[in-house]
C-alpha cells in the first residue's frame, strides 16, 4: 500500500460569513487505492470538521457525491487518486448555486424532474384482476439504459446550455421523460410532450454531447434528447402539414 501526500484544493463557502467562495488547501496523506471521497472524509475526520459535502453509498449508486474534480464533473467516489497528480482541485458541481462548501442546491432539478411525470401513466385503467402488463425483452431493451440514471446531476454540471439558460429542462429530466415514452406499458407521451417539446424543453439543447460523456452510469442523455427532437419534429409535421393524419 503506497501512500501519497496530496494537496487537496477545495472551494469553501460559508453563507453566514462569506460574500463569495474561496479555495482552501489541505495536505492529505492518501493511499493510492483511495478515491477523492476518501480524501474528503480524511479532511472531515482529521483536519477540518467544518467541511460540508454530500455523500452516502461510496459505490456510485446513490448519486450524492457529484462535484467538479479538476474541472470535470465526477462522482467523488468514482474518481481514483491514482489517476491524478499530487494536486487535485475540487469544486461544487458547476451550473448549480452553492449552499455551503461542496453542497449545491438541487431544488431546481427535482422540480424539473417531477414536471416531466417520470412514472408510468397506463394507456387505460386496468383492474388488478386483469393481470400484469406484459413486456417482451425487446420492449424492455428500448428504454433499459435510461433506468440506470441515478439523478446525480453531473449531466447538468456538464451542460453549458443549462448553465447559460437556467430555465432549460436539461438532460436527465428529458431522458427520463423519454424513458417512459419508450415504455410499451406507458400512454403518457402526449402529457409529457406538453412539457418537453417546448422552447425551454428539448429545443434548448444544441447537442453539445457533454452530458453523455460525463455520465457515470453510461446513460446517453444526449442521444435521448436527439431522439425526442426527431419524434417531436415528426409530430409537428404531422400536426401542421397533415392535419387529417390523427396520431
Amino acid at each position: 500500500m503506497s501512500e501519497r501526500q496530496i494537496q487537496l484544493e477545495v472551494l469553501r463557502y460559508n453563507p453566514e460569513t462569506d460574500s463569495e467562495p474561496r479555495y482552501q488547501t489541505y495536505s492529505v496523506p492518501c493511499l493510492n487505492e483511495w478515491v477523492v471521497l476518501d480524501a474528503l472524509n480524511y479532511v472531515k475526520d482529521n483536519l477540518d470538521p467544518t467541511l460540508s459535502y454530500r455523500w452516502s453509498c461510496h459505490m456510485a449508486v446513490c448519486g450524492s457525491c457529484g462535484m467538479m474534480i479538476n474541472g470535470e464533473p465526477k462522482l467523488a467516489c468514482k474518481a481514483f487518486i491514482h489517476e491524478y497528480t499530487d494536486q487535485i482541485r475540487v469544486d461544487p458541481m458547476a451550473n448549480f448555486p452553492i449552499e455551503r462548501d461542496l453542497v449545491t442546491s438541487v431544488e431546481d432539478f427535482i422540480a424539473k424532474l417531477a414536471s416531466v411525470k417520470p412514472y408510468l401513466i397506463p394507456k387505460e385503467d386496468k383492474p388488478i384482476s386483469a393481470g400484469e402488463f406484459k413486456q417482451t425483452p425487446a420492449e424492455l431493451k428500448k428504454f433499459k439504459q435510461y433506468t440506470l440514471c441515478i439523478n446525480c446531476m453531473l449531466c447538468y454540471a456538464a451542460c453549458p446550455q443549462y448553465g447559460l439558460v437556467p430555465e432549460f429542462l436539461g438532460p436527465a429530466a428529458i431522458s427520463m421523460a423519454h424513458r417512459y415514452n419508450q415504455d410499451s406499458r406507458d400512454g403518457g407521451r402526449d402529457q409529457r410532450q406538453e412539457v418537453i417539446a417546448t422552447d425551454t424543453g428539448v429545443w434548448e439543447c444544441s447537442f453539445v454531447g457533454a452530458c453523455s460523456e460525463v455520465c457515470p452510469k453510461h446513460v446517453d442523455p444526449a442521444g435521448a434528447l436527439q431522439q425526442v427532437k426527431v419524434a417531436s419534429t415528426i409530430d409537428w409535421y404531422k400536426e401542421h402539414l397533415m392535419p387529417w393524419m390523427k396520431k
Binding site: P15, E16, E20, P21, A94, P97, G163, L164
Partner: peptide, 17 residues
Amino acid sequence: MNKPYVRPLSKTSWFLT
C-alpha cells in the same frame, strides 16, 4: 441560513473553459 452563491458564467467565453 439560506444564501446560495451563484457562480458567474461568461456568455461570450464559456466555451474556452
